[in-house]
Design a protein around this nucleic acid. Structure first.
Lengths: 163, 163
DNA sequence: CCTACCGATCGGTAGG
DNA sequence: CCTACCGATCGGTAGG
């Protein structure tokens, strides 16, 4: 809170005229990010694309969010553990549902013969955490341009699933 | 330190008869884990296997370490940021060299036509962070058995590279 | 290995 | 929005 206050140019105590608590900021960030991903997922699900293409769109969205909204996504990915109840349970529920939707999408892709036979939950875990590794790129000297990173990661993650 | 002391069954102050500082514990863990990975990598590099098989062995080792030594690997993966200098630079150097070795391995796999053409650095980033996502599985109710997780993740990560 | 503390830091409040 | 604090917690030390 002291650091934040300094960035804003006020005393730490003054922040409490604008917010209720530190965890209120955490809540705002976590649920904003969760909502962005959910909205995008629903838009993609409603589209007429084949399942593999849908998954590619979702992967690309995750990668771009990781690049453009890095700070927010990072907090939502790592600091959600410190959410107070009942927000913690709420957040975990949303995350579980989101991942289940991705699992279902992959299961459908397998049924339709678009994707290799693979345990959908493992595929979801693998690709989501692969994307969150962009963190390591973001913090580095970025010798690789963003679009090269995006396209190569998409290639790897899609080719690993494509039949 | 208070929690740790309680687990051991002594007062927090008493811990300092056995260690110099909190960060000494962090150092011990980070460099132990880094060393385990480096030793295994060198053993695999010395073997006569094709590059794709070498990479599979390395991936399997990472996955098993994540399952069997979860707490240590977790700390080494996330808490290294809090290492004091000069340990921090040392650790980052070791990590950079390790990743470079993996990149070189993949570059060779591509040259030899065993792997798809892909940016090696991106492939390394992708597969290493995919594996670190096992954290999420480890903390969950583990509806998926360890060997199913391992084999499916290996399948995904190897098939995505195989030509 | 313990008791008794220390100085720093943290999220947050009272009162203006 | 500030000054002046608070109680809790943290890594760590002194002295026995």
């Amino acid at each position: 809170m002291r650091d934040l206050a300094e960035h804003v140019g006020v005393e730490a105590a003054s922040l409490y005229n604008h917010i209720q608590s530190k965890s209120e900021i955490l809540q705002a960030i976590c649920f904003k990010v969760a909502n962005d991903f959910l909205s995008h997922l629903e838009a993609v699900q409603a589209s007429p694309e084949p399942t593999l293409k849908k998954l590619e769109l979702i992967i690309r969205f995750h990668i771009r969010m990781m690049m453009d909204q890095y700070e927010f996504v990072y907090i939502s990915d790592h600091e959600w553990r410190h959410l107070p109840e009942p927000y913690l349970s709420n957040f975990l529920n949303q995350r579980r549902n989101y991942r289940r939707s991705l699992s279902d999408l992959i299961a459908r892709g397998i049924e339709r013969g678009e994707m290799k036979s693979i345990e959908p939950y493992v595929a979801v875990l693998t690709l989501l955490s692969a994307i969150s590794g962009i963190e390591s790129w973001h913090r580095s000297r970025k010798t690789i341009p963003p679009d090269v990173l995006e396209n190569n990661m998409v290639k790897y993650l899609i080719e690993g699933l494509k039949k």
